[in-house]
Amino acid sequence: MVKAILWDNDGVLVDTEHLYYKACREVLLRYNISFDEERYIDLFLRKSEGLLAILHENGLTEKLDTAQNWRNKRYSELLLDGIGAIGGVTDTLEILKSRVQMGIVTSCKRAHFDLIHSKTEVLKFFDFVLAREDYFNSKPDPEPYLEAMRRNHLKPNECIVVEDSPRGLQSANAAGLRCVVIPRGMTVGLNFDGAWMRLKQVADLIPVVESLQNSEKG
C-alpha cells in the first residue's frame, strides 16, 4: 500500500542547483581554483564529495571550514532574490495531498531550506520535513530516508521517493525504497540505472500513484 511520498527538495520541488553551483564556484575562485559545471555534477550530484575533495586535491584541506562558511553565506545571499516552485509542482502537490502522506527529505541546511521556501507556498502540502541537521550521514547514505521512515512509522513498501540526482537515487535504493527519478537541468544526462521509474515531469507522478492505489483496492 502506498501511504507516503518522500520528496527531495533541490531540483525536484525548486530549481536551486545553479545557485549552489555559483556559490561553490565563487568560493573556489578565492583560492585560484577553476571549477566548471561538469566537475560540479560529478562531485556534488554523483558522488557527494563536495568542497573537501577539491581542496584536498589542491593541498588546501585546512581551508575547508572557511570555504564552507563563505559558500553557505554566499548561497544564502543568492537565495534572497526568491525562488519559485518548479512548474507543475504546486498543482501536483495539491492533488496528491489528499491521497497520501507527504514529506521532504533534503540534504539542504535548515537555514537555506527556510530561505528557499519563504516564498514558494508549497510547505502547506507537507506533513514533515527532514533537513541536513536531522541526521548524521547525508545522501547517498540511506540514513536520511531511514530516519524519515522511523520518525513517521513508515515501512519501505509503503513509500515512494522522488529524486533528481544519482546520489539521491542511491540513497533511496539503499534504504529499500522505490525511487521515481525526474531529471532536470544538470542531471538530465546522468545515469539512473536502478530507478524504479523515470518520468519527464512531476505531473506524471499523479497517474502513477492513482494506478498503484487502484491496483491495491482491486
Rank of each mutant, 00 (worst) to 15 (best):
I83Y: 03
L199R: 01
M197G: 04
L80C: 10
R74C: 00
D42I: 13
G218A: 05
E57Y: 08
V129Y: 05
G59T: 12
R150N: 12
R110L: 11
A172D: 12
A148S: 11
N152T: 03
D81W: 08
R198K: 15
L146C: 06
V105R: 02
S118Q: 15
N9P: 06
Y31S: 00
K73I: 00
W196A: 10
C179P: 02
I160Q: 11
G82S: 06
C159V: 09
K3E: 03
Q101T: 06
M102G: 03
D91K: 04
A53T: 09
H112I: 09
E62C: 09
R184L: 14
L199P: 07
K217A: 08
S215K: 12
N9M: 11
S98K: 13
P207E: 06
V188K: 11
S165G: 02
L79F: 07
L29N: 10
W70V: 10
I33A: 06
K200E: 13
D193N: 14
Q101V: 04
D36E: 08
R132P: 07
V122T: 14
I104L: 07
D134Y: 08
H117G: 11
L6V: 07
H56C: 01
N72S: 03
L115I: 14
S165E: 05
F192V: 06
I54N: 09
A85G: 03
L123C: 13
Q201E: 12
M1T: 04
R39P: 07
N137S: 05
H153T: 12
L43T: 10
M102H: 05
A174H: 05
P183K: 08
K109G: 14
H56Y: 02
A4K: 12
S138V: 09
K124Y: 11
N69V: 07
T187L: 11
K119G: 13
D134K: 05
L115G: 13
V100D: 01
R198W: 02
L190N: 11
